[in-house]
Amino acid sequence: MIPFDYHRATDVEDAVRTATSRPDATYLAGGTNLVDHLRLGITSPSLLVDVSRLPFDDIDPLPDGGVRVGAGVRNSDLAAHPTIRRDYPMLAAALLAGASWQLRNLATTGGNLLQRTRCAYFQNPATPCNKREPGSGCSALAGWQRHHAILGASEHCVAVHPSDMAVPLAALDATVRLTGAHGDRGVPLTAFHRLPGDEPRRDTVLEHGELITAVDLPRLPPTTRSAYRKVRDRASYAFALVSVAAALTVTDGVVRDVRIALGGVAHKPWRATRAEETLRGADARPASFRAAAEAELAEAEPLPGSAFKTTMAREALVSVLTGLAEEGAR
């Protein structure tokens, strides 16, 4: 481990000021991702600004009926919160499908959004990786591809974003609240994570020193039903091969509103806008759901090793939507 300085932030302003003061400073929250990376030699910041004790760990109602989730709220606390369980069941389900109890007790909302890809070549400093070392090449392109992207990838990087929590947040049109040296801003979650393009080093649009302070969840109509489905290689403690977050509002057998995001398929939580467009106003029937899933995945460009994900994502999406429609009809 390379020697580094450590500063425990006293408030948001102190955190931002300290982090901005050094070009390679990094925030430390639960540490479940960052500390691994320090050990493995994937990153070596000279300054850690610990934000894990900042008082942004509340879950508060917003005036418009939504909810503000502090960046420091632990994954397990968020999953257990009565409002989240009642109004955003797919978010609670996604959180509980991630990692393990121990990790969720440490992991924070902000850290979860910013966790880095689990691409095995990214995590091994001995193998070339454009994300870790720009210009060194992408080892996954001709390597082990089972966990890689089928949508929105580039010739420079085919990694996927591993978060479960971010998938329902993308479907919910959540907003990420940021504070930086130049003030506060809000970024829609769907615009927060980037596609790799020719700059795979950058996972998000976050500027250096910008701190996530909260995530805002808009209100969902009470008739909306939502679910999260995670497909994985073992029953627990495994990252998603693909996952689906979907919220469906049906009246008189017709889809009034639908929000869908896919996980495990792209460099960011993938908002399935094409599928949503296809479905709005359509009959809430399996055939419509299948057509929507096919519309979304028509653009999929998998590698040979990740080709199964196209089928898996399609089938999982159809199944989730069908389940929600049946539930609503009951």
Partner: peptide, 15 residues
Amino acid sequence: VNGDYAGYHIPTNAD
């Protein structure tokens, strides 16, 4: 390539 407990799976209790 998958040389750690996250990549090399063995059953969890749930399995």
